[in-house]
Each structure stands twice: as C-alpha cells, then as structure tokens.
Write a protein that binds this DNA or RNA. Structure first.
Lengths: 210, 210
DNA sequence: TAGATTGTTAATCGATTAACAATC
DNA sequence: TAGATTGTTAATCGATTAACAATC
C-alpha cells in the first residue's frame, strides 16, 4: 500500500484529474449523496471506472469493496493529497477586463484559495475598485508577496507585458502562475504555469465543425 | 501524401496542439520572422521537434528540407485545417462577471471569432451595456441563434443553470460550447464542450507545492 | 557541394482498459 | 450468504521519440 505522502512518481496527467474528481464529489455532496462508486464517478465525468480506481491507487486505498467510497471522506483525502487542507493566498495581477472579473469572482474561497490583492501599473487603474479590492500599485507587489509568503498568482496583463511581469513574480517568490495571456511564458524549472486561452479552445472545437 | 481534407483519423490530442502552433506562429510573425523550423517552434513551445513534425504530417507536407517552414504559409495551412479561414459568429450567455469580461475582450476577431450578442435572463441585466453590447433577453436566444446559424457559444452562467441553458443552446443548434461553469455538462455526441475552470488549474499546481 | 531540416519509420515509452481475486 | 465493488495485474492501446534517408 502506497503512503499518501509518496507523491514522487505520480504522472502529471493523473494529478490533473484529481481536481475534477474533487469537483464531482462536491456536486455529489451538494446533491445529498453519502456514498459513491468508481462507476458512478466515471459516469459523472465521462471516463472509465478503471481509470478512477487506478488514479486513486497511486495514493492509497480509500474505498470499501462492495460499497464504494464515502463522498465526504474521499473529498478529504483528495484535498489532503492536493494540499488543499489549508487556504492558499493568491494575488491577481492586472486589473483589466479579465483581472477585474477574477477579483469579483467569489468561487475561490470555497475551493481552497483566497484573493488577497489586485495589482496594476496603470495610474488610471491604481486606487480604483475591483470587486471588494482597491487596485494597488504594481510597484508594491514584490513586497506584498514576500511579506505574506504568497505562492500563487493569476496573471491577467496584456500579452506584451506578461513575460516581464512573470519575471518579477518569480523573483518575488511566486511558484504557481495561472496565465491568462495568450503567450507561452518562460519560467525556471521550479515554477509551475497553467494557461487559459479561450480562443485556443474555440479553435480546437472548430476543427470538428463542418 | 495525405490530403489536407483527410481529417478522419487525427488524434484529438494532436488537434488540441494545432491552435498552440498557430499562436506561436502569430507571435513569430509579429516578431518579424519569415521562416521557422520544427526545432525553433519546439523550443518556443517547450515540446519536441519530432512531435511537431509528426503532428503536421497528419495533414500534409508544409515544409522544405534544409529550410523549414514559411511562417505565413504554415499559419495559412493551419487556419485552413482548423476551419479558421472564415470568421465564426459566437454568442455569450450570461452577463455576470465573466460573461461581461468576455464581451469586452477584443482578442477574438483577430483569431477567427466574432461575438454577435450577449444574453441573460435576469431582468436587472437585460438592456444593460456589456462592453459594446446591449444585454438581450435570453428568451430571444434560440431565435437569434437560428437566424444567424450560430454554432459557437461561450457559457458563463451560474453553475446551477448551466445544464438547462446548455440544453436550450443545443436545441437551438449550437454544437461548440466553451463552458465557464465549474460542472460537467452532459451533451449529445455531436456537441463539443471545452471547459475552463481556473480553480481546477490552481488546485493542480498546488499538488506540487510543499 | 556541404549543411540543414523535413517527413516518416520503427522503437520506446507511457497511459488506459479489461479482468479478476479479494473482501466488504 | 450472495451481490457488489475495490485494488491490482497484465494486456492492450496509443502517443512520443530517436533516427535517418530524402532532398532542398
């Protein structure tokens, strides 16, 4: 039996599915379900039950033969595996359309993250309101990150500034960047980047449209 | 030599990389590059050159031995493969934080899409401005979609309404949905769904953070 | 020509699935 | 107990990579 803390050899593609399992379990809990099975989860997510059992087996044994998984318990275990058994502070960089929308979005807290501040370098935006936040001067960003030991940033600046802002974030100690700019960021090996580009998704789907 | 129109057997994972190639080529063109190679593209994207050549080989021969690829020409070919050699109309459903931000975003046109309208069913939002659009009553959505033969929708409604709105969109003829709601949509087999959930990305990265 | 780079093949690598003993 | 479902193994499937002849 693998220890829950034995994370060395878990394929990245497996890690990427764990948040989806967690999300599905949350929906099941909201629907009043107490117990589920790999088959039910699989139907919910549109994947195979074998894949779910195999994925979970990287981290331990969480189910009961003949019964399945406790919805609450499996969530707890997944949160622990993903280090979500605490709240992580995040900053938003860029107070344009997307940055402001993120700042106003209230769905982070419930899932492990808390936005602590919003930054921009545009004097026309500094001091303005972005949801519950007053937009701060990006010049104070490094200090802010270091003082609070922040590791996560959501980057929503124009593409032409994204790389230089990234360099600043990395210098300040950020090691997880959710990138909304439509470019490939270059970062040191210890820094993680995930990118969101809606147009890439639209273009992919358009391939299949006559 | 495979025909450019022979798309039957292309793995989905390959299709998903084509928009990234297109995006990188656009950046190269903006940087004044006329010619590139699989190696240069690979460095740019952080993948292997063999993978790029293999991916492209599904659609034809676009390069020249000893020289590489014309940046402009390869973009043209990729746009054609992805059916982006025309402009696709899109609607935005939901005029909350995210929907409004999408409506104000000006980056779609340049990459093959044009937002034609924004819809909501909240009387408090109908008639309001969302970027250059006046928010329309969702009750008129089906008619709007059918009249204009729209195939793409960006869905930014609260999670609890996402499935029923999806059913309506599909009924109206939408076959490509970019889903911003944090749930798994159930759609008929002919409908494509791509989902964007920032929290899922943050959670995945958090696995790797001590 | 000599050097560079493609397109393609075959080998490797890794992920998914099917099947089933274990067991609740 | 009988039925259901797990965790795991081995087989299958598919994707990536290395290597190189072709050729610009």
């Amino acid at each position: 039996m693998a220890s829950v803390t034995n994370h060395k050899n878990v394929p990245d593609i497996v890690v990427g599915r764990l948040p989806l399992y967690l999300r599905a379990l949350g929906a099941m809990q909201a629907a009043g379900k107490q117990v589920t099975s790999s088959q039910e989860l699989a139907d919910w997510l549109g994947i195979s039950s074998a894949q779910i059992r195999k994925d979970l087996s990287h981290f331990g044994e969480f189910g009961k033969q003949g019964t399945g998984y406790s919805v609450v318990m499996l969530q707890e275990r997944l949160r622990h595996i993903l280090h979500l058994n605490r709240e992580w502070p995040v900053i938003v960089v860029g107070a344009g359309n997307i940055g402001s929308a993120i700042a106003r979005y209230s769905g982070f807290e419930r899932r492990g993250f808390r936005v602590l501040g919003v930054f921009d370098n545009d004097p026309g935006k500094i001091g303005a309101q972005a949801g519950p936040f007053v937009v701060q001067d990006a010049a104070r960003m490094i200090e802010f990150i270091r003082e609070r030991d922040i590791r996560h940033a959501m980057l929503a600046v124009p593409a032409e500034h994204a790389q230089s802002v990234t360099d600043t974030l990395v210098e300040a100690g950020i090691i997880a960047i959710l990138n909304y700019a439509p470019i490939n960021l270059i970062v040191p090996p210890h820094v993680h980047v995930e990118s969101i580009d809606p147009v890439v998704h639209l273009q992919k789907m358009t391939f299949y449209i006559v």
